[in-house]
Design a protein around this nucleic acid. Structure first.
Lengths: 198, 198
DNA sequence: TTTAATGATACGACCGGTTGTCTTATTTTG
DNA sequence: CAAAATAAGACAACCGGTCGTATCATTAAA
């Protein structure tokens, strides 16, 4: 009994550490040993939890997005704030966090798409579905904002959410290279604060 | 004398092959041996041409952008087409090319920022200056379009060029994951065809 | 209830292969 | 011949993955 619980704990620890290291050092730039050392789990155990590094990568990708979706959902659920403000609050909070961590990492999804999007179909599909989940929650927020009259209705919430996701990803790359959150602020200002406005 | 020419040829070949392989397989995903095999240059010679893999990477980055800047400049220089049309033509041509190559690679700059933007300062700076060069040429095109009255003047060409670069980068990532050029088309339509319009 | 058997899981030494780099020998050039 | 450029191969470190064995909880038998 205790055995299964420990297994889940170990899996979770590996995934969390995997998110951190893969985000900062990339897929091929991070060895399994480095992840295993960090969570004090022997090499042999890894293959009991995950079938391969590629499988692990795909699980890390799906594991990564959960807290972000949770955060947006929470902001959107608050009754005293309108949807547009909730989205802006989420992005501002993200920007503040990235500034705190000195722009390290950026977005695991964007980083891995660029690195292994061509070579690992398994990870590519994981990235696709994960990014779509992220888009969906933004879309629901934009849709709510349309109903509240703060976002224009002549464009679909879906299209705007896609554009927002893409521009945000590009801005995150630019942030890493410029060591500044200015691109992120520009992204929010131009889209949420201007182009998407009702 | 013949010797120096051959050295330049070898360097050029290595850089060209480096662009291709680094773009598709990433920095850590591509070994020196693979590049050297492709251009039939012995491993020992590599360090005569480049001091290290990291140095090579930085040179590959700067080598990569040249043809793109050339292409945009050429389109912009054509007397019979206005600047906005020239930019649209460039992006449409890029989209067609990516479709031809089945979305493989995307943009070397975006891919490498995500992968090694955090870990190699040398490459980060190379990526920064290279991306700025790209932004600058787009900015000059937008500025010209402003003078021609096809692009709005209440936003600076600089800001719009930055936004365009970032959204384009994000759209390229999305393209890789979706295996579709739809995000690229959306990027051009939303910005050049709508948001930036006079 | 105690004991024996069983199968799932944990483990770390080990595999062949590859990495980026460097030293040394050879070849080419002036 | 001296000097510089090139190439060959060695090098240790590391990679992802495998394997036989050890460990443990659980079930079956006594």
């Amino acid at each position: 009994m205790n055995r299964l619980i420990q297994k889940e704990i170990n899996r979770e620890n590996l995934l969390n550490q995997g998110v951190m290291l893969l985000m900062q050092q990339g897929y091929h730039g991070t060895g399994l040993q480095e992840i295993l050392d960090a969570v004090q789990i022997p090499k042999g155990s890894f293959y009991n939890y995950f079938g391969s590094k590629e499988n692990f990568g795909a699980e890390v990708i799906e594991h990564y997005i959960t807290p972000y979706i949770q955060q947006i959902t929470n902001y959107l659920a608050q009754p005293d704030t309108d949807a547009l403000s909730a989205l802006q609050r989420y992005f501002n909070e993200s920007i503040a966090e990235l500034e705190r961590t000195h722009f390290k990492g950026g977005c695991l999804l964007g980083n891995l798409i660029g690195e292994i999007g061509d070579s690992s179909d398994l990870c590519r599909v994981a990235l696709q579905t994960t990014l779509n989940r992220y888009r969906d929650v933004l879309q629901s927020g934009l849709s709510k904002a349309q109903q509240q009259g703060t976002i224009r209705t002549d464009k679909s919430a879906r299209d705007m959410a896609d554009l927002l996701v893409n521009t945000w990803q590009g801005a995150l790359l630019r942030m890493k290279v410029e060591q500044s959150t200015a691109p992120l602020q520009q992204c929010c200002q131009a889209l949420l604060g201007d182009f998407f406005k009702a």
